[in-house]
Each structure stands twice: as C-alpha cells, then as structure tokens.
Amino acid sequence: MTEQNPLVEMRHISKNFGGLQALNNASLELYPGEVLGVLGHNGAGKSTLIKILAGAETPSEGAIFVDGHEARIHDPNDARALGIETIYQELALCGNLNAPANLYMGREISKWGFLNKKAMKEETARALSKLNIRIKSLDTEVETMSGGQRQAISISRAVHFDTKILIMDEPTAALGMEESKMVMDLTVELKKQGIGIIWISHDIHEVYNFTDRITILHGGENVITGATRDFTEDEIVSMIISGRPVERNSAKEEV
C-alpha cells in the first residue's frame, strides 16, 4: 500500500490559538483505499488537525500536499474543490428538504437558474443504489427518516462529487448499533472505490476493527503512526493516555 503515492500529506503542521499550542509539528499521510484512524483524547489536537484539512481552520505553520501538489486550503469550499469532503457527527442535512434536494444542496443541476428536478432525482436514485442505500421515497423530507438513513444520505452526498478524501468525524456517535454497522458497511464500499478515509472516533474497539492504519496524537504531536494490527487494543489505549509509543513496536515505527 505504501508504494502508492499518498492522497494527502500534512507536513509539520503547527497551530496556535493565542498562547495555546494545539498542534506542534504534526503530520498525517493518507493513501487511496485505506481507512486511517486518528486517535487521541480530547484536546490532543485531532479535531484541529482535521479541521485544517477540511478548511475550517488554517495552520500557523506547515504545508498540505494533495496528490503531490501543495494545496492552499482557506475555507471549506477550497477543500471541496480538491475533493476533500467531511461527514459530521451531527447530521448535516436540511430536515425540511427531500433527499435529492439535500444531495445537490449548493450545487443544484439547473439551467438559467431553473432547477432540473428530474435529473437530480434520477442521479440521487443512482447514487443511493450504488451504495446499496434503500429509502422509501425520494420525495419525503429527510427529517422523517432514521438517523442511519440520514447519515447514509450525507455519505452519498459527500462521495457523489468526485471525492477522493473523506473525513468522517465520529460518524456513528449519534447512531444506534445497527445503524452504525450500516455506516461502516458503507465505508467499506467507499474504500473499495479507492477513496481515502480518515476515521475519527472515541470508540477504540470500532477503530481497532475497522481501520487499516492509525495515528495517535497527544498534546498536539504524533505519538505513533502505523498499521493498526501491529498493536493490541490495550497498547493503543495506553499510548493514547501516556502519549509515549509502546517499546516493543518502536522499531517498526522506524520502517
């Protein structure tokens, strides 16, 4: 996998909020078709790092490379233009609108300002069926749907527009067990399509079973980055808490 070129490289990223050093020389690499877990307890800097990639924050220092080219990401639209989409924990849909309206929100198919509802509906049906998402009717407002269905719509929206990098910020936090599984199945599907996925979660068990590689942050610095299976769940937990790499695996980290 590592022979491929990374989709994203975040190099030597630092970020200060006034006197607070949220990130100190943090790095992140993401390859096509992998799920990278970003771990760390609250305040470790993981959400700041992700927000920088999504364009919600700008770094104080450091550079971001997308497909090997240096990218300047100043706002979410810049990120989106580079094929970086974010799925949020809270469901980011307009409950008063139906699935096609949500899927195409902000990039409606139109001619001279007039909506092409038929095309959007057909495309939505196609996008949802591609990910095996079943929804009663495309005409119903999304607020009448279950949390899992809505998250599924968010995901299909995120990947519909030629997305290469998908940031999933605790995508299952608001969901029940079955719905979480549905979201994870979806994510596996996206992985197969070569999309690089950054998965942020507090659920270690979920991360352990689901991610290919992990990076652990502590105090704004990388503790370790490596294949998830090189560690045990307990080792990961201890690294998150202590902020020091586990001795046994320190050699592997060098590779």
């Binding site: 989106r80 307009c94 309206a101 929100m105 902000g106 990039r107 409606e108 300002g113 007039f114 909506l115």
Partner: peptide
C-alpha cells in the same frame, strides 16, 4: 418552486448552518 434561488430560500430557512456548510 422551480428555481435554484427558491430552493436556497427553503434550505436557508430549514437550517442556515447546513446551507452555508454545503456552499450555498
């Protein structure tokens, strides 16, 4: 009911933060 502008009005009224996040 037929234009992008109208769709945006409903989206803004439905959830302004989401509308902004989605690039409206």
């Amino acid at each position: 009911h037929k234009t992008v502008f109208g769709r945006h009005v409903y989206a803004i009224g439905g959830n302004e933060r989401v509308a902004r996040l989605q690039g409206i």
